[in-house]
Amino acid sequence: MTLLRSLLAVTLLLTFFISLSQAFQSDELLLDDEEFGLEGGRPQSRPSPNTATTTTTTTSTRKRIPDSASDSKIQFTLEHAFGDSDFSDAGNFSARLKTWSHGAQTLTKLRFSRDSFTDVEKNKFQELLKGDDFYKIRLPSNVLSPPGREYIVSSVKARCLPGDGLEEHFVIHTEGVNILGVNYGSPGACPYPRQLKLPAKWSFKSHTLLKNSEQAPRTPIFAEEVLGGEGVEGEIVMPIERSFWAKYWMYMIPLGLIVMNAVTQAMNMPEEQAGGQAGAPPQPGSAVQRGANSGVRRRS
């Protein structure tokens, strides 16, 4: 079941990795949307055309197909603050809440609609840019009963956001219906020192991503007879016996030198016999020929 869930989550994550901007309108036909009830949505949040559907439908669906998961749609708001100002609404996330047959609930298919800045907010944001201050966002920690225990806060230096327009990137870490944390920031680099740069457009380009916990890799379990493990241990248990070289190098080197010396001596000797006095300073004023030299030798 968990495998299925993670598979499903991964596919959903992949599909929703594509960013959804404010201007972007999905042309996907979402037929099954009618089945979803709106749970936990805040009353003042924008009304969805699908709110009319009641949750009873969902329950009946669940009854009909007991093994499959049932979905409902929920919304939660993004709030933002400029520096240390109070938080105000900044956009809406909507997602599907999948209720699995074993009772667990997961969020999938996250969508985001960002409210554009008002003029006041634009001014505030420009001030943040000038002061290299923080732009803060927050999300409820529980999407069913916002704000849950506490808000999830994240902040970024305002100068990181302006790119072409205003670019932001959310990675929302969820655990069931709880949001643990949000990685918020620019989608790419934010080189330090941060330069003051006003955005060309005041529209947001938002990238959102939902992340669930991954499974830790299982500990490999080997049968006793696997030689790999034992081989390692056998190798290790061996008492440390330093190698021959490590032990006796100080004897070997001089020995080698002596041997080499002896060899060269031995090799030199016949040569010396051949050209013995070659190294001796030549007689001044006389260009001694090789033949003459040997002649001298023979004479001596």
């Binding site: 990675v171 944390g181 918020y184 916990s213």
Partner: peptide
């Protein structure tokens, strides 16, 4: 057991893993 690796400047969760 849930394991997290967190960047303490931005509060980003870099890695998250569960040991059942």
């Amino acid at each position: 057991l849930v394991i997290y690796i967190i960047d303490t400047v931005t509060g980003r969760i870099l890695h998250r893993m569960i040991h059942h």
